[in-house]
Nucleic acid binder design. Structure first.
Length: 274
DNA sequence: CAGCTGCCCTGCGGGC
DNA sequence: TGCCCGCAGGGCAGCT
């Protein structure tokens, strides 16, 4: 399940592989994943003859910048890009196929079909959903203790739920939220309003650190995540609580517990997080 | 209008 | 062995 560090690694590998390439043809095999424009044929035609300028990222969204358009891509849980030197072979989970002028291709593959694509006129992408709704990245200076404390005072929600809200901060998913709250020593069910400025400061610091460390490790390869060049991340070996239920807490050796918070599987140490 | 629930979708693993 | 059910979960529509 790609979160910010994994999406960033995919962005980097795509920049190495497809920047400067011109699209000969695009085929959409699963039309519901293309949200804008609604008509799949129109999407395919707009992309024809467009050259890839570069690929950027906002939160967990990737933006493929073309001559005249911006293609906003979200991988959700299982979305992956495969770059190939040839046109194929296409497998049964490839839902969008980009064929380039030089005979290479890019396959968007997604077993769960949850991923989305939006195509906007160049320069307008930030003014439309979904990007317009995003808060700052965790590695953005705007993600500060003051900002978070203010946001937390205005809500009745629990801290984990707030950190997963992409309009507050864009990039955390279930893995890095659990890791952040463990490192900060904060129980995920604490109400936002109950947190002191000092505690919020710890959450912001640890959140930024865990995201940076995971980016440095190329993300976490959990389930089926891979970059467009097939490379995997290494951070899954450095997770303290996510997926560690029953294993000893690295801090106090008591077993890590798995529970549910806001409908999400949640990993924590009841002794070290309060 | 903030916040919650259900839905999208498929593969996998546990239980019987 | 095979079937069924629950779970995984990000984001958004549609409720309250």
């Amino acid at each position: 399940m790609p979160e910010l560090p994994e999406v960033d690694a995919v962005k980097e590998s795509l920049n190495r592989q497809i920047r400067g390439k011109t699209i000969r043809q695009v085929t959409v095999y699963w039309p519901p994943m293309v949200k804008v424009p609604e008509d799949r044929k129109q999407f395919e035609e707009m992309l024809q003859s467009q050259t890839v300028q570069n690929i950027s990222r906002m939160g967990k969204f990737m933006i493929i910048h073309l001559d005249d358009y911006a293609l906003v891509s979200h991988l959700r849980m299982e979305g992956k890009y495969f770059f190939m030197e040839e046109e194929g072979p296409k497998d049964k989970h490839t839902h969008v196929l980009f064929l380039f002028d030089d005979g290479t291709s890019l396959h968007y593959n997604d077993v769960r079909k949850f991923g989305t694509m939006h195509l906007f006129d160049k320069g307008t992408e930030n003014a439309h959903k979904p990007l317009v709704l995003l808060g700052p990245d965790p590695i953005d200076d705007r993600f500060s203790a003051e900002y978070m404390h203010e946001r937390l005072q205005k809500t009745t929600r629990r801290i984990k739920t707030v950190l997963l809200d992409q309009s507050v901060v864009a990039g955390f998913g279930n893995i890095y939220v659990d890791e952040t709250l463990f490192r900060a020593g904060i129980h995920p069910e604490r109400l936002g309003t109950s947190l002191s400025e000092k505690e919020v400061g710890r959450i912001v610091d640890e959140g930024r650190k865990v995201i940076r460390e995971a980016m440095g490790a190329g993300g976490s390869t959990i389930r089926s995540y891979a970059r467009s060049d097939g490379g995997k991340g290494e951070f899954q070996n450095r997770l303290f609580v996510y997926g560690q239920e029953g294993n000893p807490c690295p801090n106090c050796s008591r077993p890590i517990t798995k529970t549910k918070v806001g409908g999400r599987g949640t990993h924590l140490c009841y002794h070290c997080q309060e």
